[in-house]
Every structure is written in structure tokens, then in C-alpha cells.
Design a protein around this nucleic acid. Structure first.
Lengths: 168, 168
DNA sequence: CGGAGATATTTTAAGTCTAAAGTATCTCGC
DNA sequence: GCGAGATACTTTAGACTTAAAATATCTCCG
């Protein structure tokens, strides 16, 4: 292990064996999320000159499309999927529309809401990023074998339910 | 499970059993981190009218102190522990100094750097938040028993090493 | 000593994010 | 029909965040 490893993410140092297992798990979870996210963000910037939130928008739209959602997503659906506020989505979409990666279409059915969809250019751009993105994730998780990953998924599924509980 | 639970954090839906275990684990990790962080942020605001990053500064300083670090931390040490950029710390510290929760002290030894330390007021404020904060975390992790928590800690320890690898 | 890097921090510019208030539109009961 | 809420979204104000450039200081070799 390099010195960099020793120093990275020492958010949770100093708890020794003092129990507080929940707190220790939370701090370690946060450290891991930060480490991975930081890598992905830097890689997206260096390789494709795009930010992570914008990539996330493209990603959600591509996923929706691949699930058979031909008409794109509303701002609200995007907001929910990305787990960010509606106001935030407004700004992100604005930027991507300006870059011609997505389009906004008014709906006749409900004129309050708009649908957002990848342009062909946007789809091509996303598809070019998809492979590298997945390989960065694979690299970050390379220390875990298949059994580890499945156990981690199961534990996080439990956590997800418990952490979402009672949140309106 | 409420409807809110069904809809919360569906970042990873649509992958079915398509393998990509690393990617699925990453998305679920991110979802969990977001869910917990959102709760803590809202609770800190409602109960103590403080933001999470500011609480994090107080927390790091208190932890350093409890580890016997009487002289506080430098900006750089804070930046590393919090896993945020140095420029970010500058602004956070500014705000907390204005609120008289921390103090900045010049160092004779190395005049480039300053040390930051909790004021008595800052320590009292942090101590008041410590208990509630821990109970919020406990609540978020309540779906996991002790064995789960230990397994999760172990898996995240592996991930931490692997995700930190080769990061300068 | 003197200056060439190294190091610690701040500044800057741009983007992300939230909560809350505001706007527009829809729905539904009467 | 029509108005009272509900809903979808945008705007606003403020805080956080980063990367990169700028500043200040230190270290250490010659």
C-alpha cells in the first residue's frame, strides 16, 4: 500500500475499536463514495471534458431509452432518478441543451411539464463514454471479488431500505 | 415499505440481473450515501441551523483535540481529513471564524500556514450536536445488525484500499 | 548568501446544489 | 364553469465545490 493510500480518506481514523459501528460504517461508506466519485469525476473531465452531473443526466436519459422509454423523461423524473432537487435539474438541462446533447420538448398533454431526450449527438457522446466509465468503476472495485460484490450489494440493499425509511 | 421508499434512490433500477456487479455496487453505494447524507443534512439544519460541511469542520477539530492534538489542525490537515480541496476549506473556516466557533492562529514556525482550533463556544456547540448526530446515523443504519455492520465495514475496507489505489 | 524549486494557502472563475418562494397549469368538487 | 388546492417547474439567494492560477514562505543546494 502506498503512502497515498495511507493518507487518503482518513475520515474515520481515530475510532479504534470504540464500537459505534454505525458511525464507523457511515464514515467509511462516505470515504469510499468520495474516493470513487473523485476518480470518476477526474476521468470524465480528462477524457471527455464533461462534468459528473452532466454525465449523470445523459446516463439517466440513455437508461430510460434503453428501457423502452421513447419519449424521454420529464424534469421531475430526472430529478427523482438523479436524487437532486428540481431546481438543480433545470440548470443542468439548460447547459446540455446549449451543447445540443439533449432536447426539451413541450408536452401538449400537460403544459406544465417538459420532456427531455437525448439527441443523436448526445447518444453518440454517451455511448463513447460508457465503456471507459464502466472500466473506471471496475478498476475502483477491483479489490472485491464476485462474492464480495454480491455480499456488498445485499448489505447495501438493506441499508438503502433502512436509510430511506420515514423520509418523505 | 412506503411509496416514498419505492421511489427513493432508483438510481440503480433497470439493471436487473445483468451482472455488471461493480457498476451496480457503485450505484447502490452512491444511493445509500445520498440517502444518509440527505437525512443528516436536513437534521443538522432543522435542529442546529448548521450545514453539514461546517459540522464536518467542527467534527474534525474535535476529533483531533480528543486525540491529544492540542494545537488544532492546519488548513492542509483539515483539507485532507475532510477530503475536500484546500480552497474549499478556506471558505468554510472563514465562516466558522466569523461565528466565533473556531479560531485561526498564525504560526511562528511556518508563516505560510495557520492552525485552526475550536473555541470553547465551538466545542460546546459541537458537543451539543454529537449525540443527536450519532442517533440519526444509528437510525439510518438500524436495518443492519451488528454482524451486518461488521461485514459491511470489512467490505468497505477492501473497497477503500482498492478505490484509493493509484490516486496521487 | 541567494535563488531555484517545493510547499501552504488564498484567490478566481465556473459549476453544482439546496431550500424556499414564485409562476403556470391542471384537477376536481360543486 | 369556476375556483381551491395540487402539481410541475423555474427563479432566487446563498452556500459549497473544484481546478487552476496567484501569492507567500520555506528549504536547501551551490
Amino acid at each position: 500500500m502506498s503512502l497515498a493510500n495511507e493518507r487518503a480518506g482518513d475520515r474515520e481514523q481515530g475510532h479504534e475499536n470504540s464500537q459505534h459501528l454505525q458511525l464507523r460504517a457511515w464514515l467509511r461508506l462516505l470515504t469510499c463514495a468520495n474516493l470513487v466519485e473523485r476518480r470518476v469525476r477526474a476521468n470524465l473531465r480528462e477524457s471527455f471534458d464533461i462534468t459528473l452531473p452532466r454525465f449523470d443526466v445523459l446516463s439517466q436519459l440513455a437508461r430510460a431509452e434503453s428501457q423502452g422509454n421513447v419519449d424521454g423523461l420529464t424534469m421531475g423524473e430526472l430529478s427523482q432518478r438523479m436524487m437532486v432537487s428540481a431546481g438543480n435539474v433545470t440548470g443542468l438541462v439548460e447547459g446540455l441543451v446549449a451543447d445540443r446533447l439533449i432536447v426539451r420538448m413541450a408536452q401538449a398533454k400537460d403544459r406544465r411539464s417538459a420532456r427531455v431526450k437525448l439527441t443523436p449527438k448526445g447518444l453518440r457522446a454517451f455511448e463513447a463514454m460508457l465503456g471507459p466509465h464502466e472500466s473506471w468503476i471496475d478498476a475502483a472495485f477491483s479489490g472485491l471479488d464476485e462474492a464480495d460484490l454480491k455480499r456488498l450489494l445485499a448489505l447495501l440493499a438493506k441499508l438503502k431500505i433502512s436509510a430511506a425509511g420515514a423520509t418523505p
